[in-house]
Amino acid sequence: MAEKTVPATVSNGGSNGGQTNGGNREMTRASERYAPPPVDIYETPNSLVLLADMPGVPKENLEVRVDQNTLTIQGKAQHLVKGEPIYREIELTGFFRQFEISEEIATDKINAELKYGVLSLNLPKSEKAKPKKIDVKVS
């Protein structure tokens, strides 16, 4: 599963990477900015499993789509804390990440679940990609 995230996705103020405009050193950013969520991807005999940490993203703000061979994970995080800010360490942004998936994934059977801010995707392998056991006959 190759990374496919386009570096500067949806950003109004400059590119994603180099925050070169020295004045903006705060961790706050415009709502249009996106960060790639950290992921774990592992393989089981029948499928690929992807786990992505997406804190603050409610189900209705999450979008998982497969377009041709590109898997896109996108979500908009929401702060739930009430009141006036006293001290802030983290600004939740949107999440955006893309992966290139091979044709060996049965894209119509992808299963997604969101629990405790973690997205789990189950990407089943198509029949022909599953490992086959070959019996060795002893004669």
Partner: peptide, 24 residues
């Protein structure tokens, strides 16, 4: 050093803490 990251908010009556800790 600092996990989870927090935001501390408050109003007249309460303090509110929001800690970002997915998958606990």
């Amino acid at each position: 050093r600092a996990y989870p990251l927090i935001n501390l908010h408050g109003d007249k009556d309460n303090l509110y803490v929001e800690a970002v800790a997915p998958g606990i």
